[in-house]
């Protein structure tokens, strides 16, 4: 009996192909579960921002045009400027980790980082 036959090679090829399929599935799922930012206006979700696009831009939501958000290349996001009196939103700084949140109370805005995945490694809530 030969140690290795043609069918064996086919079995190996099949296994490797299956592994490839599973890997593709995995990366597709990863993309789906990547963190993104949500912007709420008085508890209503008004904007969802993908964080991993690699672009850098400044934008606002139509409910509060005087508040500017800024998304950075590395996937961090922040309140860039605001017309509120206390500027706590801007002072909060960059957010990038799931669980982090910033708010501009006078304008009724909340910016938070979320992920659809049951994230075993992220935080439920962030402080400090």
């Amino acid at each position: 009996m030969k140690f290795c036959k043609r069918t064996d090679l086919a079995v190996i090829a099949l296994i490797l192909a299956l592994a490839g399929v599973f890997y593709t599935l995995h990366s597709a799922r990863q993309k789906e579960t990547a963190a993104f930012a949500e912007i709420y206006y008085y508890n209503t979700l008004v904007e969802t921002v993908a964080l991993t696009t690699g672009e850098e831009r400044t934008f606002s939501v139509k409910e509060a045009p005087n508040v500017l958000f800024r998304l950075y290349k590395d996937g961090a996001i922040c309140f860039f400027s605001s017309d509120c009196p206390d500027k706590i939103c801007v002072n909060t700084g960059l957010l990038s980790e799931v669980g982090q949140m910033a708010a501009c109370l006078p304008n009724g805005l909340v910016l938070k980082i979320v992920s659809l995945a049951a994230d075993e490694l992220g935080a439920d809530i962030a402080i400090g």
Partner: peptide, 21 residues
């Protein structure tokens, strides 16, 4: 299953791979 399906088409190696996987 490998033995029945492929008879002698699979060598020990093919069967062993099936077994391990």
């Amino acid at each position: 299953g490998g033995l029945k399906l492929f008879k002698t088409g699979l060598s020990y190696m093919g069967l062993s791979i099936l077994g391990a996987v």
